[in-house]
Nucleic acid binder design. Structure first.
Lengths: 197, 197
DNA sequence: TTCAATTGATTAACGGTGTTTGGAAAACTT
DNA sequence: AAGTTTTCCAAACACCGTTAATCAATTGAA
């Protein structure tokens, strides 16, 4: 009697369809165009059904945000296992974030409340930023062993550099400027990493 | 017969009341809480009245955005007239932007579509960024006279640095971290300016 | 002063939004 | 086959941006 399992699988499928559909609408027409009713239309269910998977639209966006941070963290771990040199690790991490932001800009927008995306729950990225001991923080600590506060400061500067380049490029630069922007960003990262060694 | 003038003054007053009220609601409860009806309630008019001052909610936000950029540009000009040394000019400009973003965060949010603020019209900041010849661009050109493309690249890097620090601090840092954040930012700016000389 | 015309402001409505409720239909169990 | 559980949706609520129709007041001309 795999009935329960089949149901479980179906539920999981619908849930991920909802998330995927939300992102597709956002990618096509922006987050301000994403509505519960439109998602329901596309997955061919009635609007109330979505509330059996997410308590609210805000919780739905929070899930996308959390998934985004998880994707990035997985990439960090992968890089840490792949390379021993912290300098190489950091530039690879920078490249990973850049790629993520160009491949899934709509997820990046939800992660940081950009371009019409708005999700109330902030503890997600506040934890993401503050926790001393995340992969990137440790890479910096390995690159230049100092007091925790000093590492945290450098980590903060590193995020500002990365976030600034990506956000400015995403929101204010024409599409054709991306190629140059990427090299300028990566130059900046390498300069930064050399600067803190 | 100052009747026409009185009416003109009243119209101007209502218009600026609308803009002010929008910003006040945004500062209090965030931009997602700003609605035409709520503004109308506060200025004690019916909702349709707002459409005699702004074609749409989007145009209203566009006005706030344009005013924000104008405020910054005026500050740039003021600084350029006050100091001769381009290095001093640039650090003062950086400080001016930082102050602006902490004094009027809700305007900064509209200018760059952050935190639930969303305004369609993008040509505003695209022009703001692209035009070679704006005050900051010229300060950089004076600091290090090179080909226009090179100056534009440095200008782009300068904006990314500034935007990254301010946005990350505004959206991901707890309120109490602001004091440190400002000094870290200004250190970063000075290092950047020294780096390009 | 009366009447017409312009203006100022509002009420009511339309289509859209997130969300909740009540109940019907389907699926499963016994 | 009857009873129980689950799945699902139509309808409604309150709010949103926006528009059309209308009412009241003021103005200018007769």
């Amino acid at each position: 009697m795999g009935i329960v399992e089949r149901r479980e699988r179906l539920k999981h499928q619908v849930r991920s369809d909802i998330l995927k559909t939300a992102c597709e609408i956002a990618r096509e027409d922006g987050w301000q165009a994403v509505s519960i009713r439109k998602i329901a239309d596309i997955i061919e269910y009635s609007p109330p059904i979505l509330y059996e998977y997410f308590d609210s639209k805000d919780k739905l966006l929070e899930t996308i945000r959390i998934n985004g941070f998880k994707t990035l963290n997985d990439a960090y771990e992968h890089i840490r296992n792949l390379y021993r040199n912290p300098e190489k690790q950091l530039t690879e991490v920078a490249q990973a974030i850049w790629n993520f932001s160009t491949e899934q800009p709509e997820v990046f927008q939800v992660m940081f409340n950009q371009e019409g995306a708005y999700c109330q729950s902030k503890q997600v990225y506040q934890k993401e930023m503050d926790i001393t001991g995340n992969p990137v923080w440790e890479m910096i600590a390995t690159l230049r062993p100092k007091a925790a506060a000093s590492v945290t400061k450098t980590y903060y500067e590193w995020w500002c550099l990365t976030y600034g380049f990506i956000s400015i490029t995403m929101t204010t630069q024409p599409q054709n400027a991306f190629a140059q922007a990427e090299t300028i960003y990566m130059e900046g990262v390498r300069r930064f990493v050399r600067g803190i060694m």
